[in-house]
């Protein structure tokens, strides 16, 4: 399973770093966030619009700015090529499903445009749960 999550991380980084919409406006996209998928957790570190590092085995004290926490089932819905209603974005799923937005939400808001574009790359690469 460890190999699987590391393969996923490489795929996600390649997709993100080569995305034209990200490249167009993500020059100042620098922050660190956690994706808590229940069965697995990831910490993604962004620097100047590129994926600097994906921590696939976070330790308890590893730091991040904000976190998205939801069940593995919800993350699997996010990872469908065409997600079902209410699983089609972080606002929809936080209003109507079990997604929780935690930590410093201001950082999320500061980078919302780029984060939203990047989050939808999950429809292309799926999720590691």
């Amino acid at each position: 399973m460890t190999t699987d999550i590391k393969s996923w991380a490489i795929k996600f980084k390649n997709l993100s770093d080569s995305d034209k919409t990200m490249a167009a406006m993500a020059k100042y996209y620098t922050c660190t966030y956690m994706w808590d998928m229940g069965e697995k957790k990831l910490i993604i570190e962004m620097h100047d619009g590129k994926v600097k590092h994906i921590n696939t085995d976070p330790a308890p004290l590893d730091a991040y700015d904000f976190a998205l926490r939801a069940s593995a089932q919800t993350w699997r819905e996010f990872g469908r090529p065409m997600p079902r209603p209410m699983f089609h974005g972080i606002w929809a799923a936080s209003f109507r499903e079990d997604l929780k937005l935690e930590g410093n939400i201001l950082v999320l808001m500061q980078h919302l445009r780029n984060f939203t574009v990047q989050f939808e790359l999950l429809r292309k690469c799926g999720v590691p749960v």
């Binding site: 089609h88 974005g89 606002w91 919302l112 939203t116």
Partner: peptide, 17 residues
């Protein structure tokens, strides 16, 4: 925060994929 982008991307997933 960049209000223009927060408003625009904040309503992004009010739209269907």
């Amino acid at each position: 925060a960049n209000a223009a982008q927060v408003c625009a991307s904040g309503v992004w997933d009010l739209m269907a994929p």
